[in-house]
Design a protein around this nucleic acid. Structure first.
Lengths: 163, 163
DNA sequence: TCAATTTCATTAGCTAGCTATGTAAATTAA
DNA sequence: TTAATTTACATAGCTAGCTAATGAAATTGA
């Protein structure tokens, strides 16, 4: 164990823990994002669902859950709110009566061009002072962490084969 | 912009976003942690508060909020639950009638030796396959992100001067 | 010295996650 | 071809975050 910093900074030990760093980084990013998107009536959580739908409009709720890596009840509740604010429509699948497909409203599609720059802004703020290699390295390392934890996680890592 | 991977993986675009990676990494770690600590009646959220108190027993609720970087109402509610499960005691400060100091119970102090290895296990699982330099780099980059976002965040970065 | 301001904790009420459980449609198997 | 199983969604009830507003003690300042 290197003990170099500890005398300078009494908090170094636990502010250096991966869990602490993840938690604070995630919450700070969420807050920064929501500060910007809330003017358009979109929360940080909703943003994650919308981003997937902008890529794959019309997928089922189950598929959507897998994409955002949230459990089904979380998705159900999130979609109810998105539906209430007129951003998505839910239609029963004609092929399979169990499935409900989720579609973006025109309003939600228009929002994409407004929201994307805001998110870009947050990403740039978050990675300010990092060069291109460092930014790529951060992503790579986080993906590795995700892959490592996927073993005991809910869904297989994407791109997912149907299990 | 390198476009190498995009043709291989249709999800590469948004699964590469910093917000997505942070969110999934944080939630996966929380779940992995809670899977292990729940046997001892401790949630992932409570863990963060306990860890600070193991370092600085007897600090005020406000100070505790700053350390874990959560808002005061979040801390109040978390402490109520910790108090109810017999892990902390809250005593009004004799010096300042507004302050409430938070103390660990003997039970909570004993828990430290049981919980620390579990958390260590999660950290190792999360960073499996990364060498020492990569682990250090991940921490360094996350700290940089935290520092960048601190500007529009709630509390000044630690170690904090009293503001 | 006492009125105004600041600080610390709290409450109320909201969104967002989770697990456990239920229900109906589709699929599998007897 | 009907009974059992699986799949997809929903509901209930919980913890954990947040903002806004309230209350009470301490501090400031006229």
């Amino acid at each position: 164990m290197p003990k170099k910093q500890e005398t300078e900074n009494p908090y170094a030990e636990w502010t250096n823990s991966l869990g602490y760093l993840m938690r604070t980084a995630f919450r700070s990013m969420s807050r920064a994002l929501e500060n910007r998107t809330s003017d358009h009536g979109v929360t940080a959580s909703q943003w994650h669902f919308l981003r997937v739908l902008w890529m794959e409009d019309g997928i089922s709720q189950r598929e959507l859950s897998e994409r955002v890596r949230m459990r089904e009840p979380t998705t159900v509740v999130a979609l109810k709110r998105l539906e209430k604010s007129g951003l998505v429509l839910r239609k029963q699948s004609p092929d399979d009566g169990r499935k409900i497909n989720v579609y973006l409203s025109p309003k939600a599609k228009r929002l994409k061009t407004k929201l994307m720059p805001l998110v870009e802004e947050v990403n740039e703020l978050a990675t300010e002072g990092l060069n291109a290699e460092e930014k790529a390295e951060l992503r790579r390392l986080l993906q590795k962490v995700n892959a490592n934890l996927a073993a005991e996680d809910i869904y297989p890592m994407l791109p997912a084969k149907k299990r």
